[in-house]
């Protein structure tokens, strides 16, 4: 999860900074328009490299941090089937992080540097992982709805222009489909279970709804459009389009299980074919991005723990012949 990197086009750092030859730029654009993929050794505009690096890096970070809220429930999963499925699932997410760090490395930033920027809070990851998984119900909701939202995003991104990222995403999406199946199975077990189980599940849906609406980023009317990124096929769909697609796919599945959605204004406008909803609290969204969410500090503390406790392993392995540079996908 999840390359919904939040890139602020108004940030001066994101302005085209160097003059680049129009000829090269045109050839680059033509290649993308032809549906060809950009490969690591190809020429690319500085800004393209920069935005993609940031996007893939944030995506990789999200996979890695995403392992934490679910990971804490592995030791509490209630039976063999769930325990094994959850370990396998979280293991996949760590594997996604690995694939994505490899893809990002092809753009010139090392995994070590990325893990370091993550740890010190310089690099971002999806806001959704700054919320706690309070009960087993949250595990069902994360497995079905957060992974579901992630798939919407990742399937779209897999049609982007950068070869290594697309190939990593193809593999990732295949595994995500499996997570979704497991998540749904878990969700159904609780939804058709005892009153306590249903209540636990409904509470979890209520808690996760706003983070899920935040997941795809601010509404299009608020976020300045990123035409350049669209033309370069770095960004392939607007936030609202992705959110709309998610609601189309998942609202019926939630309702069919007899669950409710904590937004009385949520409805599909039959004329525009778009979903209408109450405005989620966007101030909170920005607060969490800036590091002030319920779990931001804890997540980074875990990454620091990992670094400090395993420094001796990293040091012992630090031999030049063991440095791998070939991307896995």
């Amino acid at each position: 999860m999840y390359g919904n990197a939040f890139i602020d086009p108004n940030d001066p750092r994101n302005k085209q900074e160097v003059e680049e030859s129009q000829e090269l730029l045109d050839a680059f654009q033509a290649k993308i328009d032809n549906g060809q993929k950009i490969e690591p050794s190809d020429w690319m505009p500085k800004m393209y490299r920069k935005q993609l690096t940031r996007m893939i890096e944030q995506h990789a970070n999200s996979e890695l941090i995403g392992a934490l809220p679910e990971g804490t429930w592995i030791t509490r999963a209630p039976n063999f089937k769930r325990k094994m499925a959850l370990i396998a699932k979280v293991q996949d997410e760590v594997g996604h992080a690995q694939l994505l760090y490899n893809a990002a490395e092809t753009l010139g930033k090392s995994r070590e540097a990325m893990l370091n920027d993550l740890m010190i809070g310089k690099a971002k990851y999806s806001n959704v992982f700054n919320y706690p998984a309070e009960t087993w119900g949250d595990i069902a909701v994360i497995g079905f709805l957060v992974d579901g939202a992630a798939i919407v995003n990742q399937l779209i991104n897999s049609k982007g222009s950068y070869g290594p990222y697309c190939r990593a995403l193809k593999r990732i999406c295949a595994e995500e489909a499996f997570h979704l199946k497991q998540g749904h199975d878990n969700l159904v077990a609780l939804a058709v279970g005892t009153p306590e189980q249903r209540q636990m599940l409904q509470d979890a849906v209520n808690r996760w709804w706003q983070p899920l609406m935040h997941f795809f980023g601010p509404p299009d009317k608020q976020s300045v459009h990123s035409e350049q990124l669209m033309r370069w096929k770095v960004k392939l769909a607007s936030n609202d389009d992705m959110r709309n697609q998610f609601l189309d796919q998942y609202v019926p599945k939630i309702l069919e299980l007899g669950l409710s959605i904590p937004d009385p204004n949520l409805r599909k406008n039959s004329e525009t074919k778009r979903w209408e909803m109450s405005d989620p609290d966007w101030d909170e969204f920005y607060r969490v991005i800036k590091g002030d969410g319920p779990c931001n500090k804890e997540r980074l503390a875990v990454r620091r723990w990992v670094k400090e406790h395993h420094q001796w392993v990293t040091d012992a392995l630090l031999r030049p012949e063991r440095v791998r540079t070939v991307p896995l996908a």
């Binding site: 592995i74 396998a88 760590v94």
Partner: peptide, 28 residues
């Protein structure tokens, strides 16, 4: 399985998760 997500390297994280699944599978 307690190492899942916090292993010393991503590769070792994955390896420990995979062995944990095998072991729990054997128990089953």
């Amino acid at each position: 399985s307690e190492w899942t997500g916090i292993g010393p390297t991503l590769e070792e994280d994955i390896a420990f998760s995979s062995m944990a699944q095998d072991k729990i599978g054997h128990a089953f």
